[in-house]
Design a protein around this nucleic acid. Structure first.
Lengths: 345, 345
DNA sequence: ATGGCGTCCGTAAACGTTTACGATTTCAAC
DNA sequence: GTTGAAATCGTAAACGTTTACGGACGCCAT
C-alpha cells in the first residue's frame, strides 16, 4: 500500500496525491477530497523512511534518559510526567517522541553518536547532564538541535532548563536556621552529575549569607536511593555531635534515612529535622510526612519542548528566538518531618 | 558524509563499500580493511532512512510503555531493568530499542496504529496488556512481530510472558493461612488491566483449595499508588470485623497502607499482616520491612527479547521456533510485615 | 487573433542505501 | 592454448517519498 497504489486506484499521478495529502495549494479542492477519502479507505499511511530520505528529516524527537543507578529507582515517577508534557507539545506538530534509554553498560557518548549518525532523530532532549558532558560538544559540532535538562559547564549556544537546586538548598537552609538549627547535614549524589555541585553551592552560599561557616564534614555523598539514605543516617549517627537537621536531594533517600533513625530510636520530625526533595505521592504518605519541594513536571516538559522547537529550523517561526536558559522554580511544601525547633546552643 | 563520499574518497564503487561494511563475502580482505578504516576516520554512519527504504526493515524495536496512573509512580523502577535486559539482547543484533510512551490523553490503539502505519519499527513489545486488548488484534492482522508482557484473553499465535500472579496470590494466601489468618483482604488495581483478574483468580483458588469460602467484601479495588494503599487501609478499618491480613499487588501501596494504620494506632507486622508485591530497594527499608516477591527483571527482559526475535523472520534461525507462552516465577522474600501468628478463632 | 496569467496536474529527478547481475581478472587444469 | 571456476568489483535498478519544473487548459484583456 504505497503512494503509487493509491495513485493508480484514483487514476491520478503520484505527485498530485502527495501534494494533496501534504496540503499544498496547487491542487483542486475536489481532487484533494477524493485523495483523503481513498487514503482513509485503503488505510494508506506514508512510509516514514521514504519521506525521511527525501526531505532529510525524520519527524521524530529523541528524549535521552539515563538508566543509571541514580535514576533507576525514581526515574519513572520523575520522567513520565515530563515526557507527557513534552509529548503534548510535539503531538501538535506531528512529531513523534521516542525515549532513548542508554544502558548502564554502554557509554552515553557512543550511544548518542550512533543515534545522530543514523539520522534517527531531528532533535534531542538530554537529561542527567554531567559537568563536562561530552554529548553537548558532539551535538554542537554536528549541529543537531537539542536542549538539556540540567545545566552543564560547557559554553556554547544551546537552550537548557535546570531545576533551581541552588534556590532549593538556600530555602531549606534558611528555614532550618530559622528553626534554630546550626549543624545541618546534606546528602548529595556521589556521581558526577551536575546537580550535586549546584546543590552544594546553594548550601554553602546560604550558610555564608547567614554568617555560618561551611563544614565539609557535613556533606555526605551517597547514592540516590533508600540505601543511600540509610548510609547518610548511619554517617550522621557516627559523628561525635550528630547534626540536628539534614537535607536530602532525593525523596527515596528519606525512606532509608527514616529506617536507620528508627533503628537507633530516633524519630525524624521530633529528634531530627529532615527536608527532602522532591514532592511526590510518597512524600505525603510517609510517617512523618516529608517537607519537600514541588515541581510542575508536566509544565517543565512543555517548556523543554518549546525550547527545543525554537532551535529547529522548521519551527523557528512559531517560537521565540531568544535562547532559553531557564532556572525552574520549585515551591516548598511543608510536612511534618522538620517541625522541631532547637534551642540555639 | 554519505556512502558516495566515502566511495569517492577511496576510489572504489559505492557497491563495494556497502558490501564491505555489511560483511558480504565477495570483497577483498584488504579492501574491506581500507573501507572500515576510512569509515571510522571520516565518521561515516549509514543513513537509516536509506537502508530502511531499501530493505524494508528499520532495525529498531519499540517497547510500548503505558504512562497511566497505575504505572506512573512505580513504572520507572519496574521498566528500567526490564528495558536493560531487552536492550542487552538487541544490541548484539544491531537492533535499536526505543521506548514508546503513549500519553494518557491518547488512545493506545490509535497510537499504535500510527507507529505501525509509518513502518517505524520491525517489532514491538507491549506491556500493560488489557483483558481484551485491541492492540493484539491489530498487530496480528498487520503481521507485525510482537510479544506481550502480560497475558490477554485474545487467542492467536503470539508469544507472551506474564508474571505468575496466580502463584504469588496462592503462595501469599497459603502462608497467611498457615499463620492462622482466616480473613485475608487483597488490594487490587481498579483498572481493566489483566493482572487484577489473574490475581483475584489465584486468591480465590488458594482459598478454596484450603476449604475457605470467598468473601467478595475482602477484595478492595484501588489505584496502585500510596493513595490507593491508604484507601485500602481505610476500607479495612471500616469493616465491622477488620481483616487480620492483607495482600497488596503493588509495593507503593504499602507506604500508604502503613501510614493509615499508624494513624489508627495499628502496627503493621504486629497487629496486622501485610504481604506486598514487588520486592525493591524500598521494601527492604520500610518499617517494618515488607514481605514480598522478588523478580529478576533483567532476565525477564532478556526472555522477552528472545521471544520477540524468535518470531522475526530475519532472526528465526538463531532462536527456537516453538511459540513462547511463559509464566514468570517469583520468589517470596520474607520481611517483618507478616510476622504475626493468629490464634485460630 | 494574440498574449498573458492563473489553475491544476504530470514528469522526472533526487534522497542514501542494498543487491542482482554482469564484467573483468586471475589461476589452475586440461 | 583453451576452458572453467573462483575472486573481486562496477553498474544500475529499486525502495517510497517530495518537489522543482514545465505543460495543458481556460479565461480575460488587448
Amino acid at each position: 500500500m504505497s503512494i503509487r497504489d493509491l495513485a493508480r486506484h484514483l487514476n491520478i499521478s503520484i505527485g498530485t496525491v502527495s501534494r494533496a495529502l501534504n496540503g499544498k495549494s496547487d491542487v483542486n479542492a475536489e481532487t484533494r477530497e477524493r485523495v483523503f477519502l481513498a487514503a482513509k479507505e485503503l488505510g494508506y499511511v506514508p512510509n516514514q523512511s521514504g519521506r525521511s530520505l527525501r526531505q532529510g528529516t525524520t519527524n521524530t524527537i529523541g528524549f535521552m534518559i539515563e538508566s543509571s543507578i541514580e535514576t533507576a529507582d525514581n526515574g519513572g515517577s520523575f520522567f513520565m510526567p515530563v515526557f507527557e508534557g513534552v509529548q503534548s507539545v510535539f503531538r501538535r506538530h506531528q512529531l513523534d517522541l521516542v525515549a532513548l534509554l542508554c544502558g548502564t553498560d554502554e557509554d552515553p557518548g557512543a550511544y548518542l553518536n550512533r543515534i545522530v549518525g543514523r539520522r534517527f532523530v531531528d532533535g534531542l532532549i538530554i537529561s542527567a547532564t554531567m559537568r563536562n558532558d561530552p554529548r553537548i560538544a558532539l551535538l554542537l559540532e554536528r549541529k543537531i538541535p537539542f536542549v538539556t535538562l540540567g545545566r552543564s559547564n560547557i559554553g556554547g549556544q544551546y537552550p537548557w532548563i535546570d531545576l533551581d537546586f541552588e534556590g532549593v538548598a538556600a530555602t531549606a537552609v534558611t528555614r532550618l536556621l530559622n528553626f534554630g538549627h546550626r549543624e545541618i547535614a546534606i546528602g548529595v549524589p556521589a556521581s558526577d552529575i551536575n546537580l550535586g555541585y549546584i546543590f552544594v553551592e546553594g548550601y554553602k552560599r546560604a550558610l555564608s549569607d547567614h554568617g555560618i561557616g561551611f563544614d565539609p564534614g557535613l556533606v555526605f555523598p551517597a547514592s540516590g536511593n533508600e540505601e543511600g539514605g540509610y548510609q547518610v543516617a548511619s554517617a550522621m549517627l557516627s559523628q561525635k555531635r550528630m547534626p540536628t537537621a539534614v537535607i536530602l536531594v532525593n525523596e527515596n533517600m528519606a525512606i532509608g534515612l527514616y529506617r536507620r533513625f528508627y533503628e537507633a530510636g530516633i524519630h525524624p520530625g521530633r529528634d531530627v529535622a529532615v527536608i527532602g526533595f522532591r514532592e511526590s505521592t510518597q512524600s505525603r504518605f510517609l510517617s512523618p510526612t516529608l517537607t519537600c519541594f514541588r515541581i510542575s513536571l508536566r509544565d517543565l516538559g512543555i517548556k523543554l519542548a518549546e525550547a527545543l522547537l525554537s532551535t529547529m529550523p522548521a519551527f523557528m517561526g512559531n517560537y521565540p528566538q531568544d535562547s532559553i536558559e531557564l532556572v525552574w522554580p520549585m515551591e516548598l511544601v511543608p510536612g511534618e518531618s522538620d517541625h522541631l525547633c532547637m534551642e540555639p546552643s
